[in-house]
Design a protein around this nucleic acid. Structure first.
Length: 183
DNA sequence: ACCCCGATCGTA
DNA sequence: ACGATCGGGGTT
């Protein structure tokens, strides 16, 4: 299963967000099939952390595609993002959910839960997921159905359908290993 | 120095 | 419906 390279992330954020669904995220000796993502796109996106320009926190979003952006939310949870598009353009995909095929009982339906499960914290900020052995993506061949909805937990930019999520019905079927329907 | 609030989650 | 918990960013 080939590792996803930089050119995958150096594309329009909506494309990357959608294509990451069904890909495998590997970190800390665990792997997860991604089932939910969101796109945050540039200074013109009011929900994007870079909406008000460059700051210490969002600095990494202005970096090269493939960099990891981790931030602390509500004082207790971390959220994992991958920087997209060309260097200098602040955009990223938030990884919001997944399933561990080797540990189906886990409910990784939320960015905070996902990071907690994979032990991802602020130390991963600025890591390059296209060259790091610590955190990377594999180009798995799962063909999962994807719905588009408004993004969760924001108060602006709700007009955009920039959340990509595998519907619940399909999610329960993924649990059945060897389900050819999605491979 | 102070104040506000958030790309969340678990419990009630 | 609400509280936990804290760092970033804007304001005084």
């Amino acid at each position: 299963m080939p590792k996803i390279t930089q050119s995958f992330f150096a594309r329009p954020t909506l494309i990357v967000a959608k294509l990451l669904i069904g890909k495998e995220l590997v970190c800390n000796n665990k792997s997860v099939i991604i089932t939910e993502t969101e796109a945050y796109v540039g200074e013109g996106d009011p929900a994007c952390h870079a909406a008000k320009g460059r700051t210490k926190r969002n600095d990494v979003m202005f970096g090269e595609a493939g960099l990891v952006y981790v931030y602390l939310i509500y004082g207790m949870y971390y959220c994992l993002n991958i920087v997209t598009e060309e260097g200098g353009y602040p955009a990223a995909v938030l990884i919001r959910g997944g399933v561990d095929l080797g540990n189906i009982s886990q409910k990784l339906d939320g960015p905070g839960k996902l990071c907690r499960y994979l032990n991802i914290d602020k130390n991963y900020n600025y890591l390059d997921c296209t060259s790091s052995p610590e955190l990377f993506f594999n180009d798995s061949n799962y063909k999962l159905p994807v719905n588009q909805t408004p993004r969760i937990g924001i108060s602006q930019g709700l007009d955009k359908l920039w959340r990509y999520v595998v519907p619940k019905e399909a999610l329960s079927e993924i649990a059945i290993l060897g389900n050819k329907k999605y491979v």
